[in-house]
């Protein structure tokens, strides 16, 4: 099966000149798959981390501490209004070089965080800043009277949050959240700039060595169309599963 596919692409190259090395050269294929894996790792970890950052930030913003609220506000404003690429550089080069090195098991000096970890950190903060705003607007959209009703039934503040406010807020902000998470998936390509071997990086390596820019561009296009498509599909499934009959519109 695999041999047949490889043979077909080899033939395609010999007869038409379309050189899809990834599909018959195992070395290129492995690089491509590794890049895809790295993109998935970046996307999944930053999505999760940014959701946590968003939830905690939104909670703090509705909390009593003025100082903490101000800090979260500042964080949101700064990260929303500066280029994510510069944020990555600032973290990786700026802070990364200021942090002390650690000694690895074999006695070598290594930075505390490698480039992949810095990319995950800064991308999570970037998307998390948007998520804070999104979650906050969701929580604010829950009517005060609904919370009052929960209180009148004996719910504590925490239980009312858990069973009434958060489920409703999540539904309100889901469309905006979808957008932001899809955007985050696209933004993971910026990790390329600090040499994180994700899909774009791997594909570019392949095309610079095999001189097949057009073909690899096509592969790149299909790859990202597929990844974004899958995420859109998942989020729409989720949105549909959470839809409340007769609620809103």
């Amino acid at each position: 099966m695999i041999e047949a596919v490889q043979a077909w692409f080899q033939r395609l190259y010999e007869t038409t000149g379309f050189n899809f090395t990834v599909f018959y050269d195992p070395y290129d294929w492995d690089r491509y798959v590794a890049g895809l894996r790295m993109t998935l790792l970046l996307a999944l970890s930053t999505i999760l981390a940014s959701l946590v950052i968003g939830a905690v930030g939104a909670l703090v913003q509705s909390g009593p501490s003025r100082l903490l609220r101000g800090l979260v506000n500042g964080f949101v404003v700064v990260f929303r209004n500066t280029p994510p690429l510069v944020q990555i550089f600032f973290f990786y080069f700026g802070l990364g070089t200021l942090l002390p090195d650690v000694r690895t098991a074999d006695g070598l000096r290594a930075p505390i965080l490698n480039n992949v970890q810095w990319a995950i950190l800064s991308l999570s903060l970037f998307a998390g800043a948007f998520n804070v705003e999104i979650f906050r607007s969701g929580i604010e959209a829950v009517p005060k009277t609904t919370i009052e009703a929960a209180e009148a039934l004996g719910y504590t503040r925490f239980k009312a949050y858990r069973h009434v406010v958060l489920p409703l807020a999540l539904r309100v902000c889901l469309p905006a959240l979808n957008n932001n998470l899809i955007n985050l998936l696209k933004t993971t390509t910026l990790a390329y700039a600090i040499a994180v071997p994700e899909t774009l990086y791997a594909v570019k390596q392949i095309w610079s060595e095999s001189q097949n820019v057009l073909e690899m561009m096509l592969v790149l296009l299909v790859t990202y169309a597929f990844l974004v498509g899958v995420l859109v599909w998942i989020m729409h499934r989720w949105e549909r599963a959470l839809r409340i009959p007769g609620y809103g519109r």
């Binding site: 009703a149 009148a152 069973h163």
Partner: peptide, 13 residues
């Protein structure tokens, strides 16, 4: 003490 509100305030979800 139970309470019923003007706007019902059911939990829509």
């Amino acid at each position: 003490v139970g309470m019923v509100f003007q706007q019902y305030n059911l939990f829509p979800h």
